[in-house]
Amino acid sequence: MLWGILAIIALAALFGLLLGLASVVFKVESSPVVDQIDALLPQTQCGQCSYAGCRPYAEAIAAGEAPINLCPPGGENTVQALADLLDVEVLPLEEEEEAHEGPIVAVIIEELCIGCTLCIQACPVDAIIGAAKQMHTVIESECTGCELCVPPCPVDCIEMVPVKQTITTWHWPEPQYDVNHTPAGNIFTTIDQVLAENAHP
């Protein structure tokens, strides 16, 4: 009896030691969870999550202080990806207002700009250039559409506009027509509405 117990204890100690050693020797370096979370966030740095930027939000999620559904620019996809990464349940997106359809960028109405540099200071990604008393300009390709430059502007000369779709950004849509969702009528009609219904009323 005693020997049995001792043997078991000895075995347990041995395997415990082995496991402990293995975890040290074969340690797998994985990038810290904060980096992984940060990589999934859209990096708009908009602060809509109430944190000072994407990385602080990532840190908060990692620390368990923030839920995963505070990022409107990332949308459902980001929530889904975060849920997958952290193995938690998908939460519905917390939205304060109607989300925008598609990406947006800031545009400065140049006639109104007084060159106060307030927006330049507000921009988290340095996408606005200009100097004091000189007109400012948004570099469109760098703008993340975070809207942080809108409130500081004293003359309300910054507008958020949807990014215009062009031939190069156009997309084949996902096919939507199958027997289970029969659309009404011919959804493909064009060539100028089949030459205005072949010139008949």
Partner: peptide
Amino acid sequence: MFVAQSSP
């Protein structure tokens, strides 16, 4: 907006 019919 119309739906583009894909080839073929």
